[in-house]
C-alpha cells in the first residue's frame, strides 16, 4: 500500500512536471516566433526598437513598419493559431476522433463561404462579416449534426458528411471569387487557403476579444471533455453533465473557428494538426487544450515566417500549413480505411 502510494504520487508528479516543462517550452517557442515576426522583414529592427514600438513610443521608420504592418499581422497569426488549435482539439476530444476537426468537417468552410458572400456579394461592412461567419458556422455545424443523426451520432458518419458539406461550401467560395473578377490574387488566396496578409486592427480586434472570452470558457470544460473520451455513459457515471458540456464546447469552439476564419480565411489544417502534434509532444492522459492552442500558434506563426521569407515567392500561410497537413490527412484516412472504422 505505502509503496504503491509512493509510486503513484511520484509517477503523477513526474508526469505533471514533464508536461509543465514541455508546455513551457511550447510557450517560449510562441514568444520567440512572435518576436522574430516583428523583427524580421524588409528592414530588420532589433528587439529594443520593436519593444519600444509595442509600448507605444515613436520610433522613426520602425513605428510604421512594425506598428502598422507587422504588429497586426503577427497578432492575427498568433490569435488565429490559438483559436484554431483550441477549437480543433475541442472537437477531436469531444468526438474522440482526430479527423473530426472543424476544418475537416466543413465548419471552417461554412464560415469562409459566408464571409466571402457577405463581403463580395452583399458588400457588408467588416463588423457584420464576423457575425455572419459565426452564424453560418453554427448553421453548418447544425446541418452536419442533423444529417449525421440516426439513433445518435457516430463519429465516422459525421466526418464523411462533413467532408462532403465542406467540398460543397468550398465550391461556393471558388464560384464567388471567380465571379468577382476585380479581386486581386492576394484577397482570393485569403479565402481559398487562408492568409494573414493585409491584417488590420478592425478584423484582428474581434478575434482577439473572442479568444480572451471563449478560451477560458473552453478551458473550464477541459476536465469534463477529457472524461467524455471514455464514452457518454462512462463520463456521466463520473459526474459529467454530458449534454451541457457538449453544447458549451460546440458553441465556444465554433465561435472561435468562425472568427478566426472571418479574419484570416480558412487557414488549412491548423485546427486539424494542432491536437495530434500536442499529444505527441506532451503525451496524452491530461488535457491537451493549452498545448494544442500553443501548437496552433506555432504552426500559423511559423508557416507565415516560412511563407514570407524562406521561399523565393511570398506564399500565404495557408499554402504552407496545407503542405504540412494534407499528408497527415491522407495518412489518417488510410488508417481509417484499413481499420474499417474510426482511426
Amino acid at each position: 500500500m505505502t509503496t504503491t502510494l509512493v509510486s503513484v504520487t511520484s509517477g503523477r508528479l513526474g508526469r505533471a512536471r514533464s508536461r509543465a516543462l514541455l508546455t513551457g517550452i511550447l510557450a517560449a517557442v510562441v514568444v520567440a516566433l512572435v518576436a522574430t515576426s516583428l523583427m524580421v522583414g524588409q528592414t530588420f529592427y532589433g528587439p529594443g526598437e520593436v519593444l519600444r514600438v509595442v509600448l507605444g513610443q515613436h520610433v522613426p521608420g520602425a513605428s510604421f513598419a512594425v506598428g502598422e504592418l507587422r504588429l497586426p499581422r503577427t497578432t492575427l497569426a498568433l490569435v488565429a493559431g490559438l483559436a484554431l488549435g483550441l477549437a480543433g482539439v475541442t472537437f477531436q476530444t469531444m468526438l474522440h476522433n482526430p479527423l473530426a476537426s472543424p476544418d475537416v468537417i466543413g465548419i471552417s468552410s461554412g464560415a469562409s463561404a459566408a464571409a466571402v458572400v457577405a463581403i463580395v456579394v452583399l458588400r457588408l461592412p467588416e463588423s457584420l462579416v464576423s457575425l455572419v461567419a459565426i452564424g453560418a458556422a453554427l448553421l453548418t455545424a447544425l446541418v452536419i449534426y442533423l444529417l449525421a443523426y440516426r439513433d445518435g451520432v457516430v463519429g465516422t458518419r459525421l466526418i464523411l458528411i462533413g467532408i462532403g458539406i465542406s467540398a460543397m461550401l468550398d465550391s461556393v467560395v471558388s464560384y464567388v471569387i471567380v465571379r468577382a473578377a476585380t479581386w486581386d490574387l492576394q484577397t482570393a488566396m485569403r479565402w481559398l487557403t487562408g492568409s494573414v496578409n493585409g491584417a488590420v486592427w478592425s478584423t484582428v480586434a474581434p478575434l482577439t476579444l473572442a479568444v480572451l472570452v471563449l478560451a477560458p470558457v473552453l478551458l473550464a470544460q477541459a476536465r469534463p471533455l477529457r472524461l467524455m473520451q471514455h464514452g457518454d455513459d462512462a463520463a456521466a457515471a463520473l459526474g459529467v453533465p454530458v449534454e451541457r458540456t457538449r453544447v458549451i464546447a460546440i458553441l465556444a469552439a465554433v465561435g472561435l473557428v468562425a472568427l478566426a476564419t472571418a479574419a484570416a480565411g480558412p487557414i488549412a489544417f491548423v485546427a486539424f494538426l494542432a491536437g495530434p502534434i500536442a499529444a505527441r509532444i506532451v503525451g496524452p492522459g491530461t488535457s491537451l487544450m493549452v498545448p494544442a492552442a500553443l501548437v496552433g500558434a506555432v504552426l500559423v506563426l511559423g508557416a507565415d515566417l516560412v511563407g514570407q521569407h524562406a521561399a523565393g515567392n511570398r506564399y500565404p500561410v495557408g499554402v504552407v500549413t496545407g503542405v504540412l497537413g494534407a499528408p497527415y490527412l491522407v495518412h489518417l484516412l488510410i488508417r481509417t480505411n484499413r481499420a474499417g472504422g474510426s482511426p
Binding site: 503513484v8 509517477g11 503523477r12 508526469r15 474522440h96 476536465r223 477529457r226 472524461l227 473520451q229 471514455h230 464514452g231 455513459d233 462512462a234 457515471a237 463520473l238 459526474g239 459529467v240 499529444a279 503525451g283 496524452p284 492522459g285 491530461t286
Partner: peptide
C-alpha cells in the same frame, strides 16, 4: 457505474486513467 465497453484514450497510462475516477 462501469459501462459495458468504456473507451480508453490512446496512450493514457494506467495511473492517469484510474485517477480520473476521482473527478466527482
Amino acid at each position: 457505474l462501469l459501462p459495458q465497453s468504456p473507451v480508453a484514450p490512446e496512450g493514457i497510462v494506467v495511473a492517469d486513467l484510474v485517477a480520473r475516477g476521482r473527478s466527482p
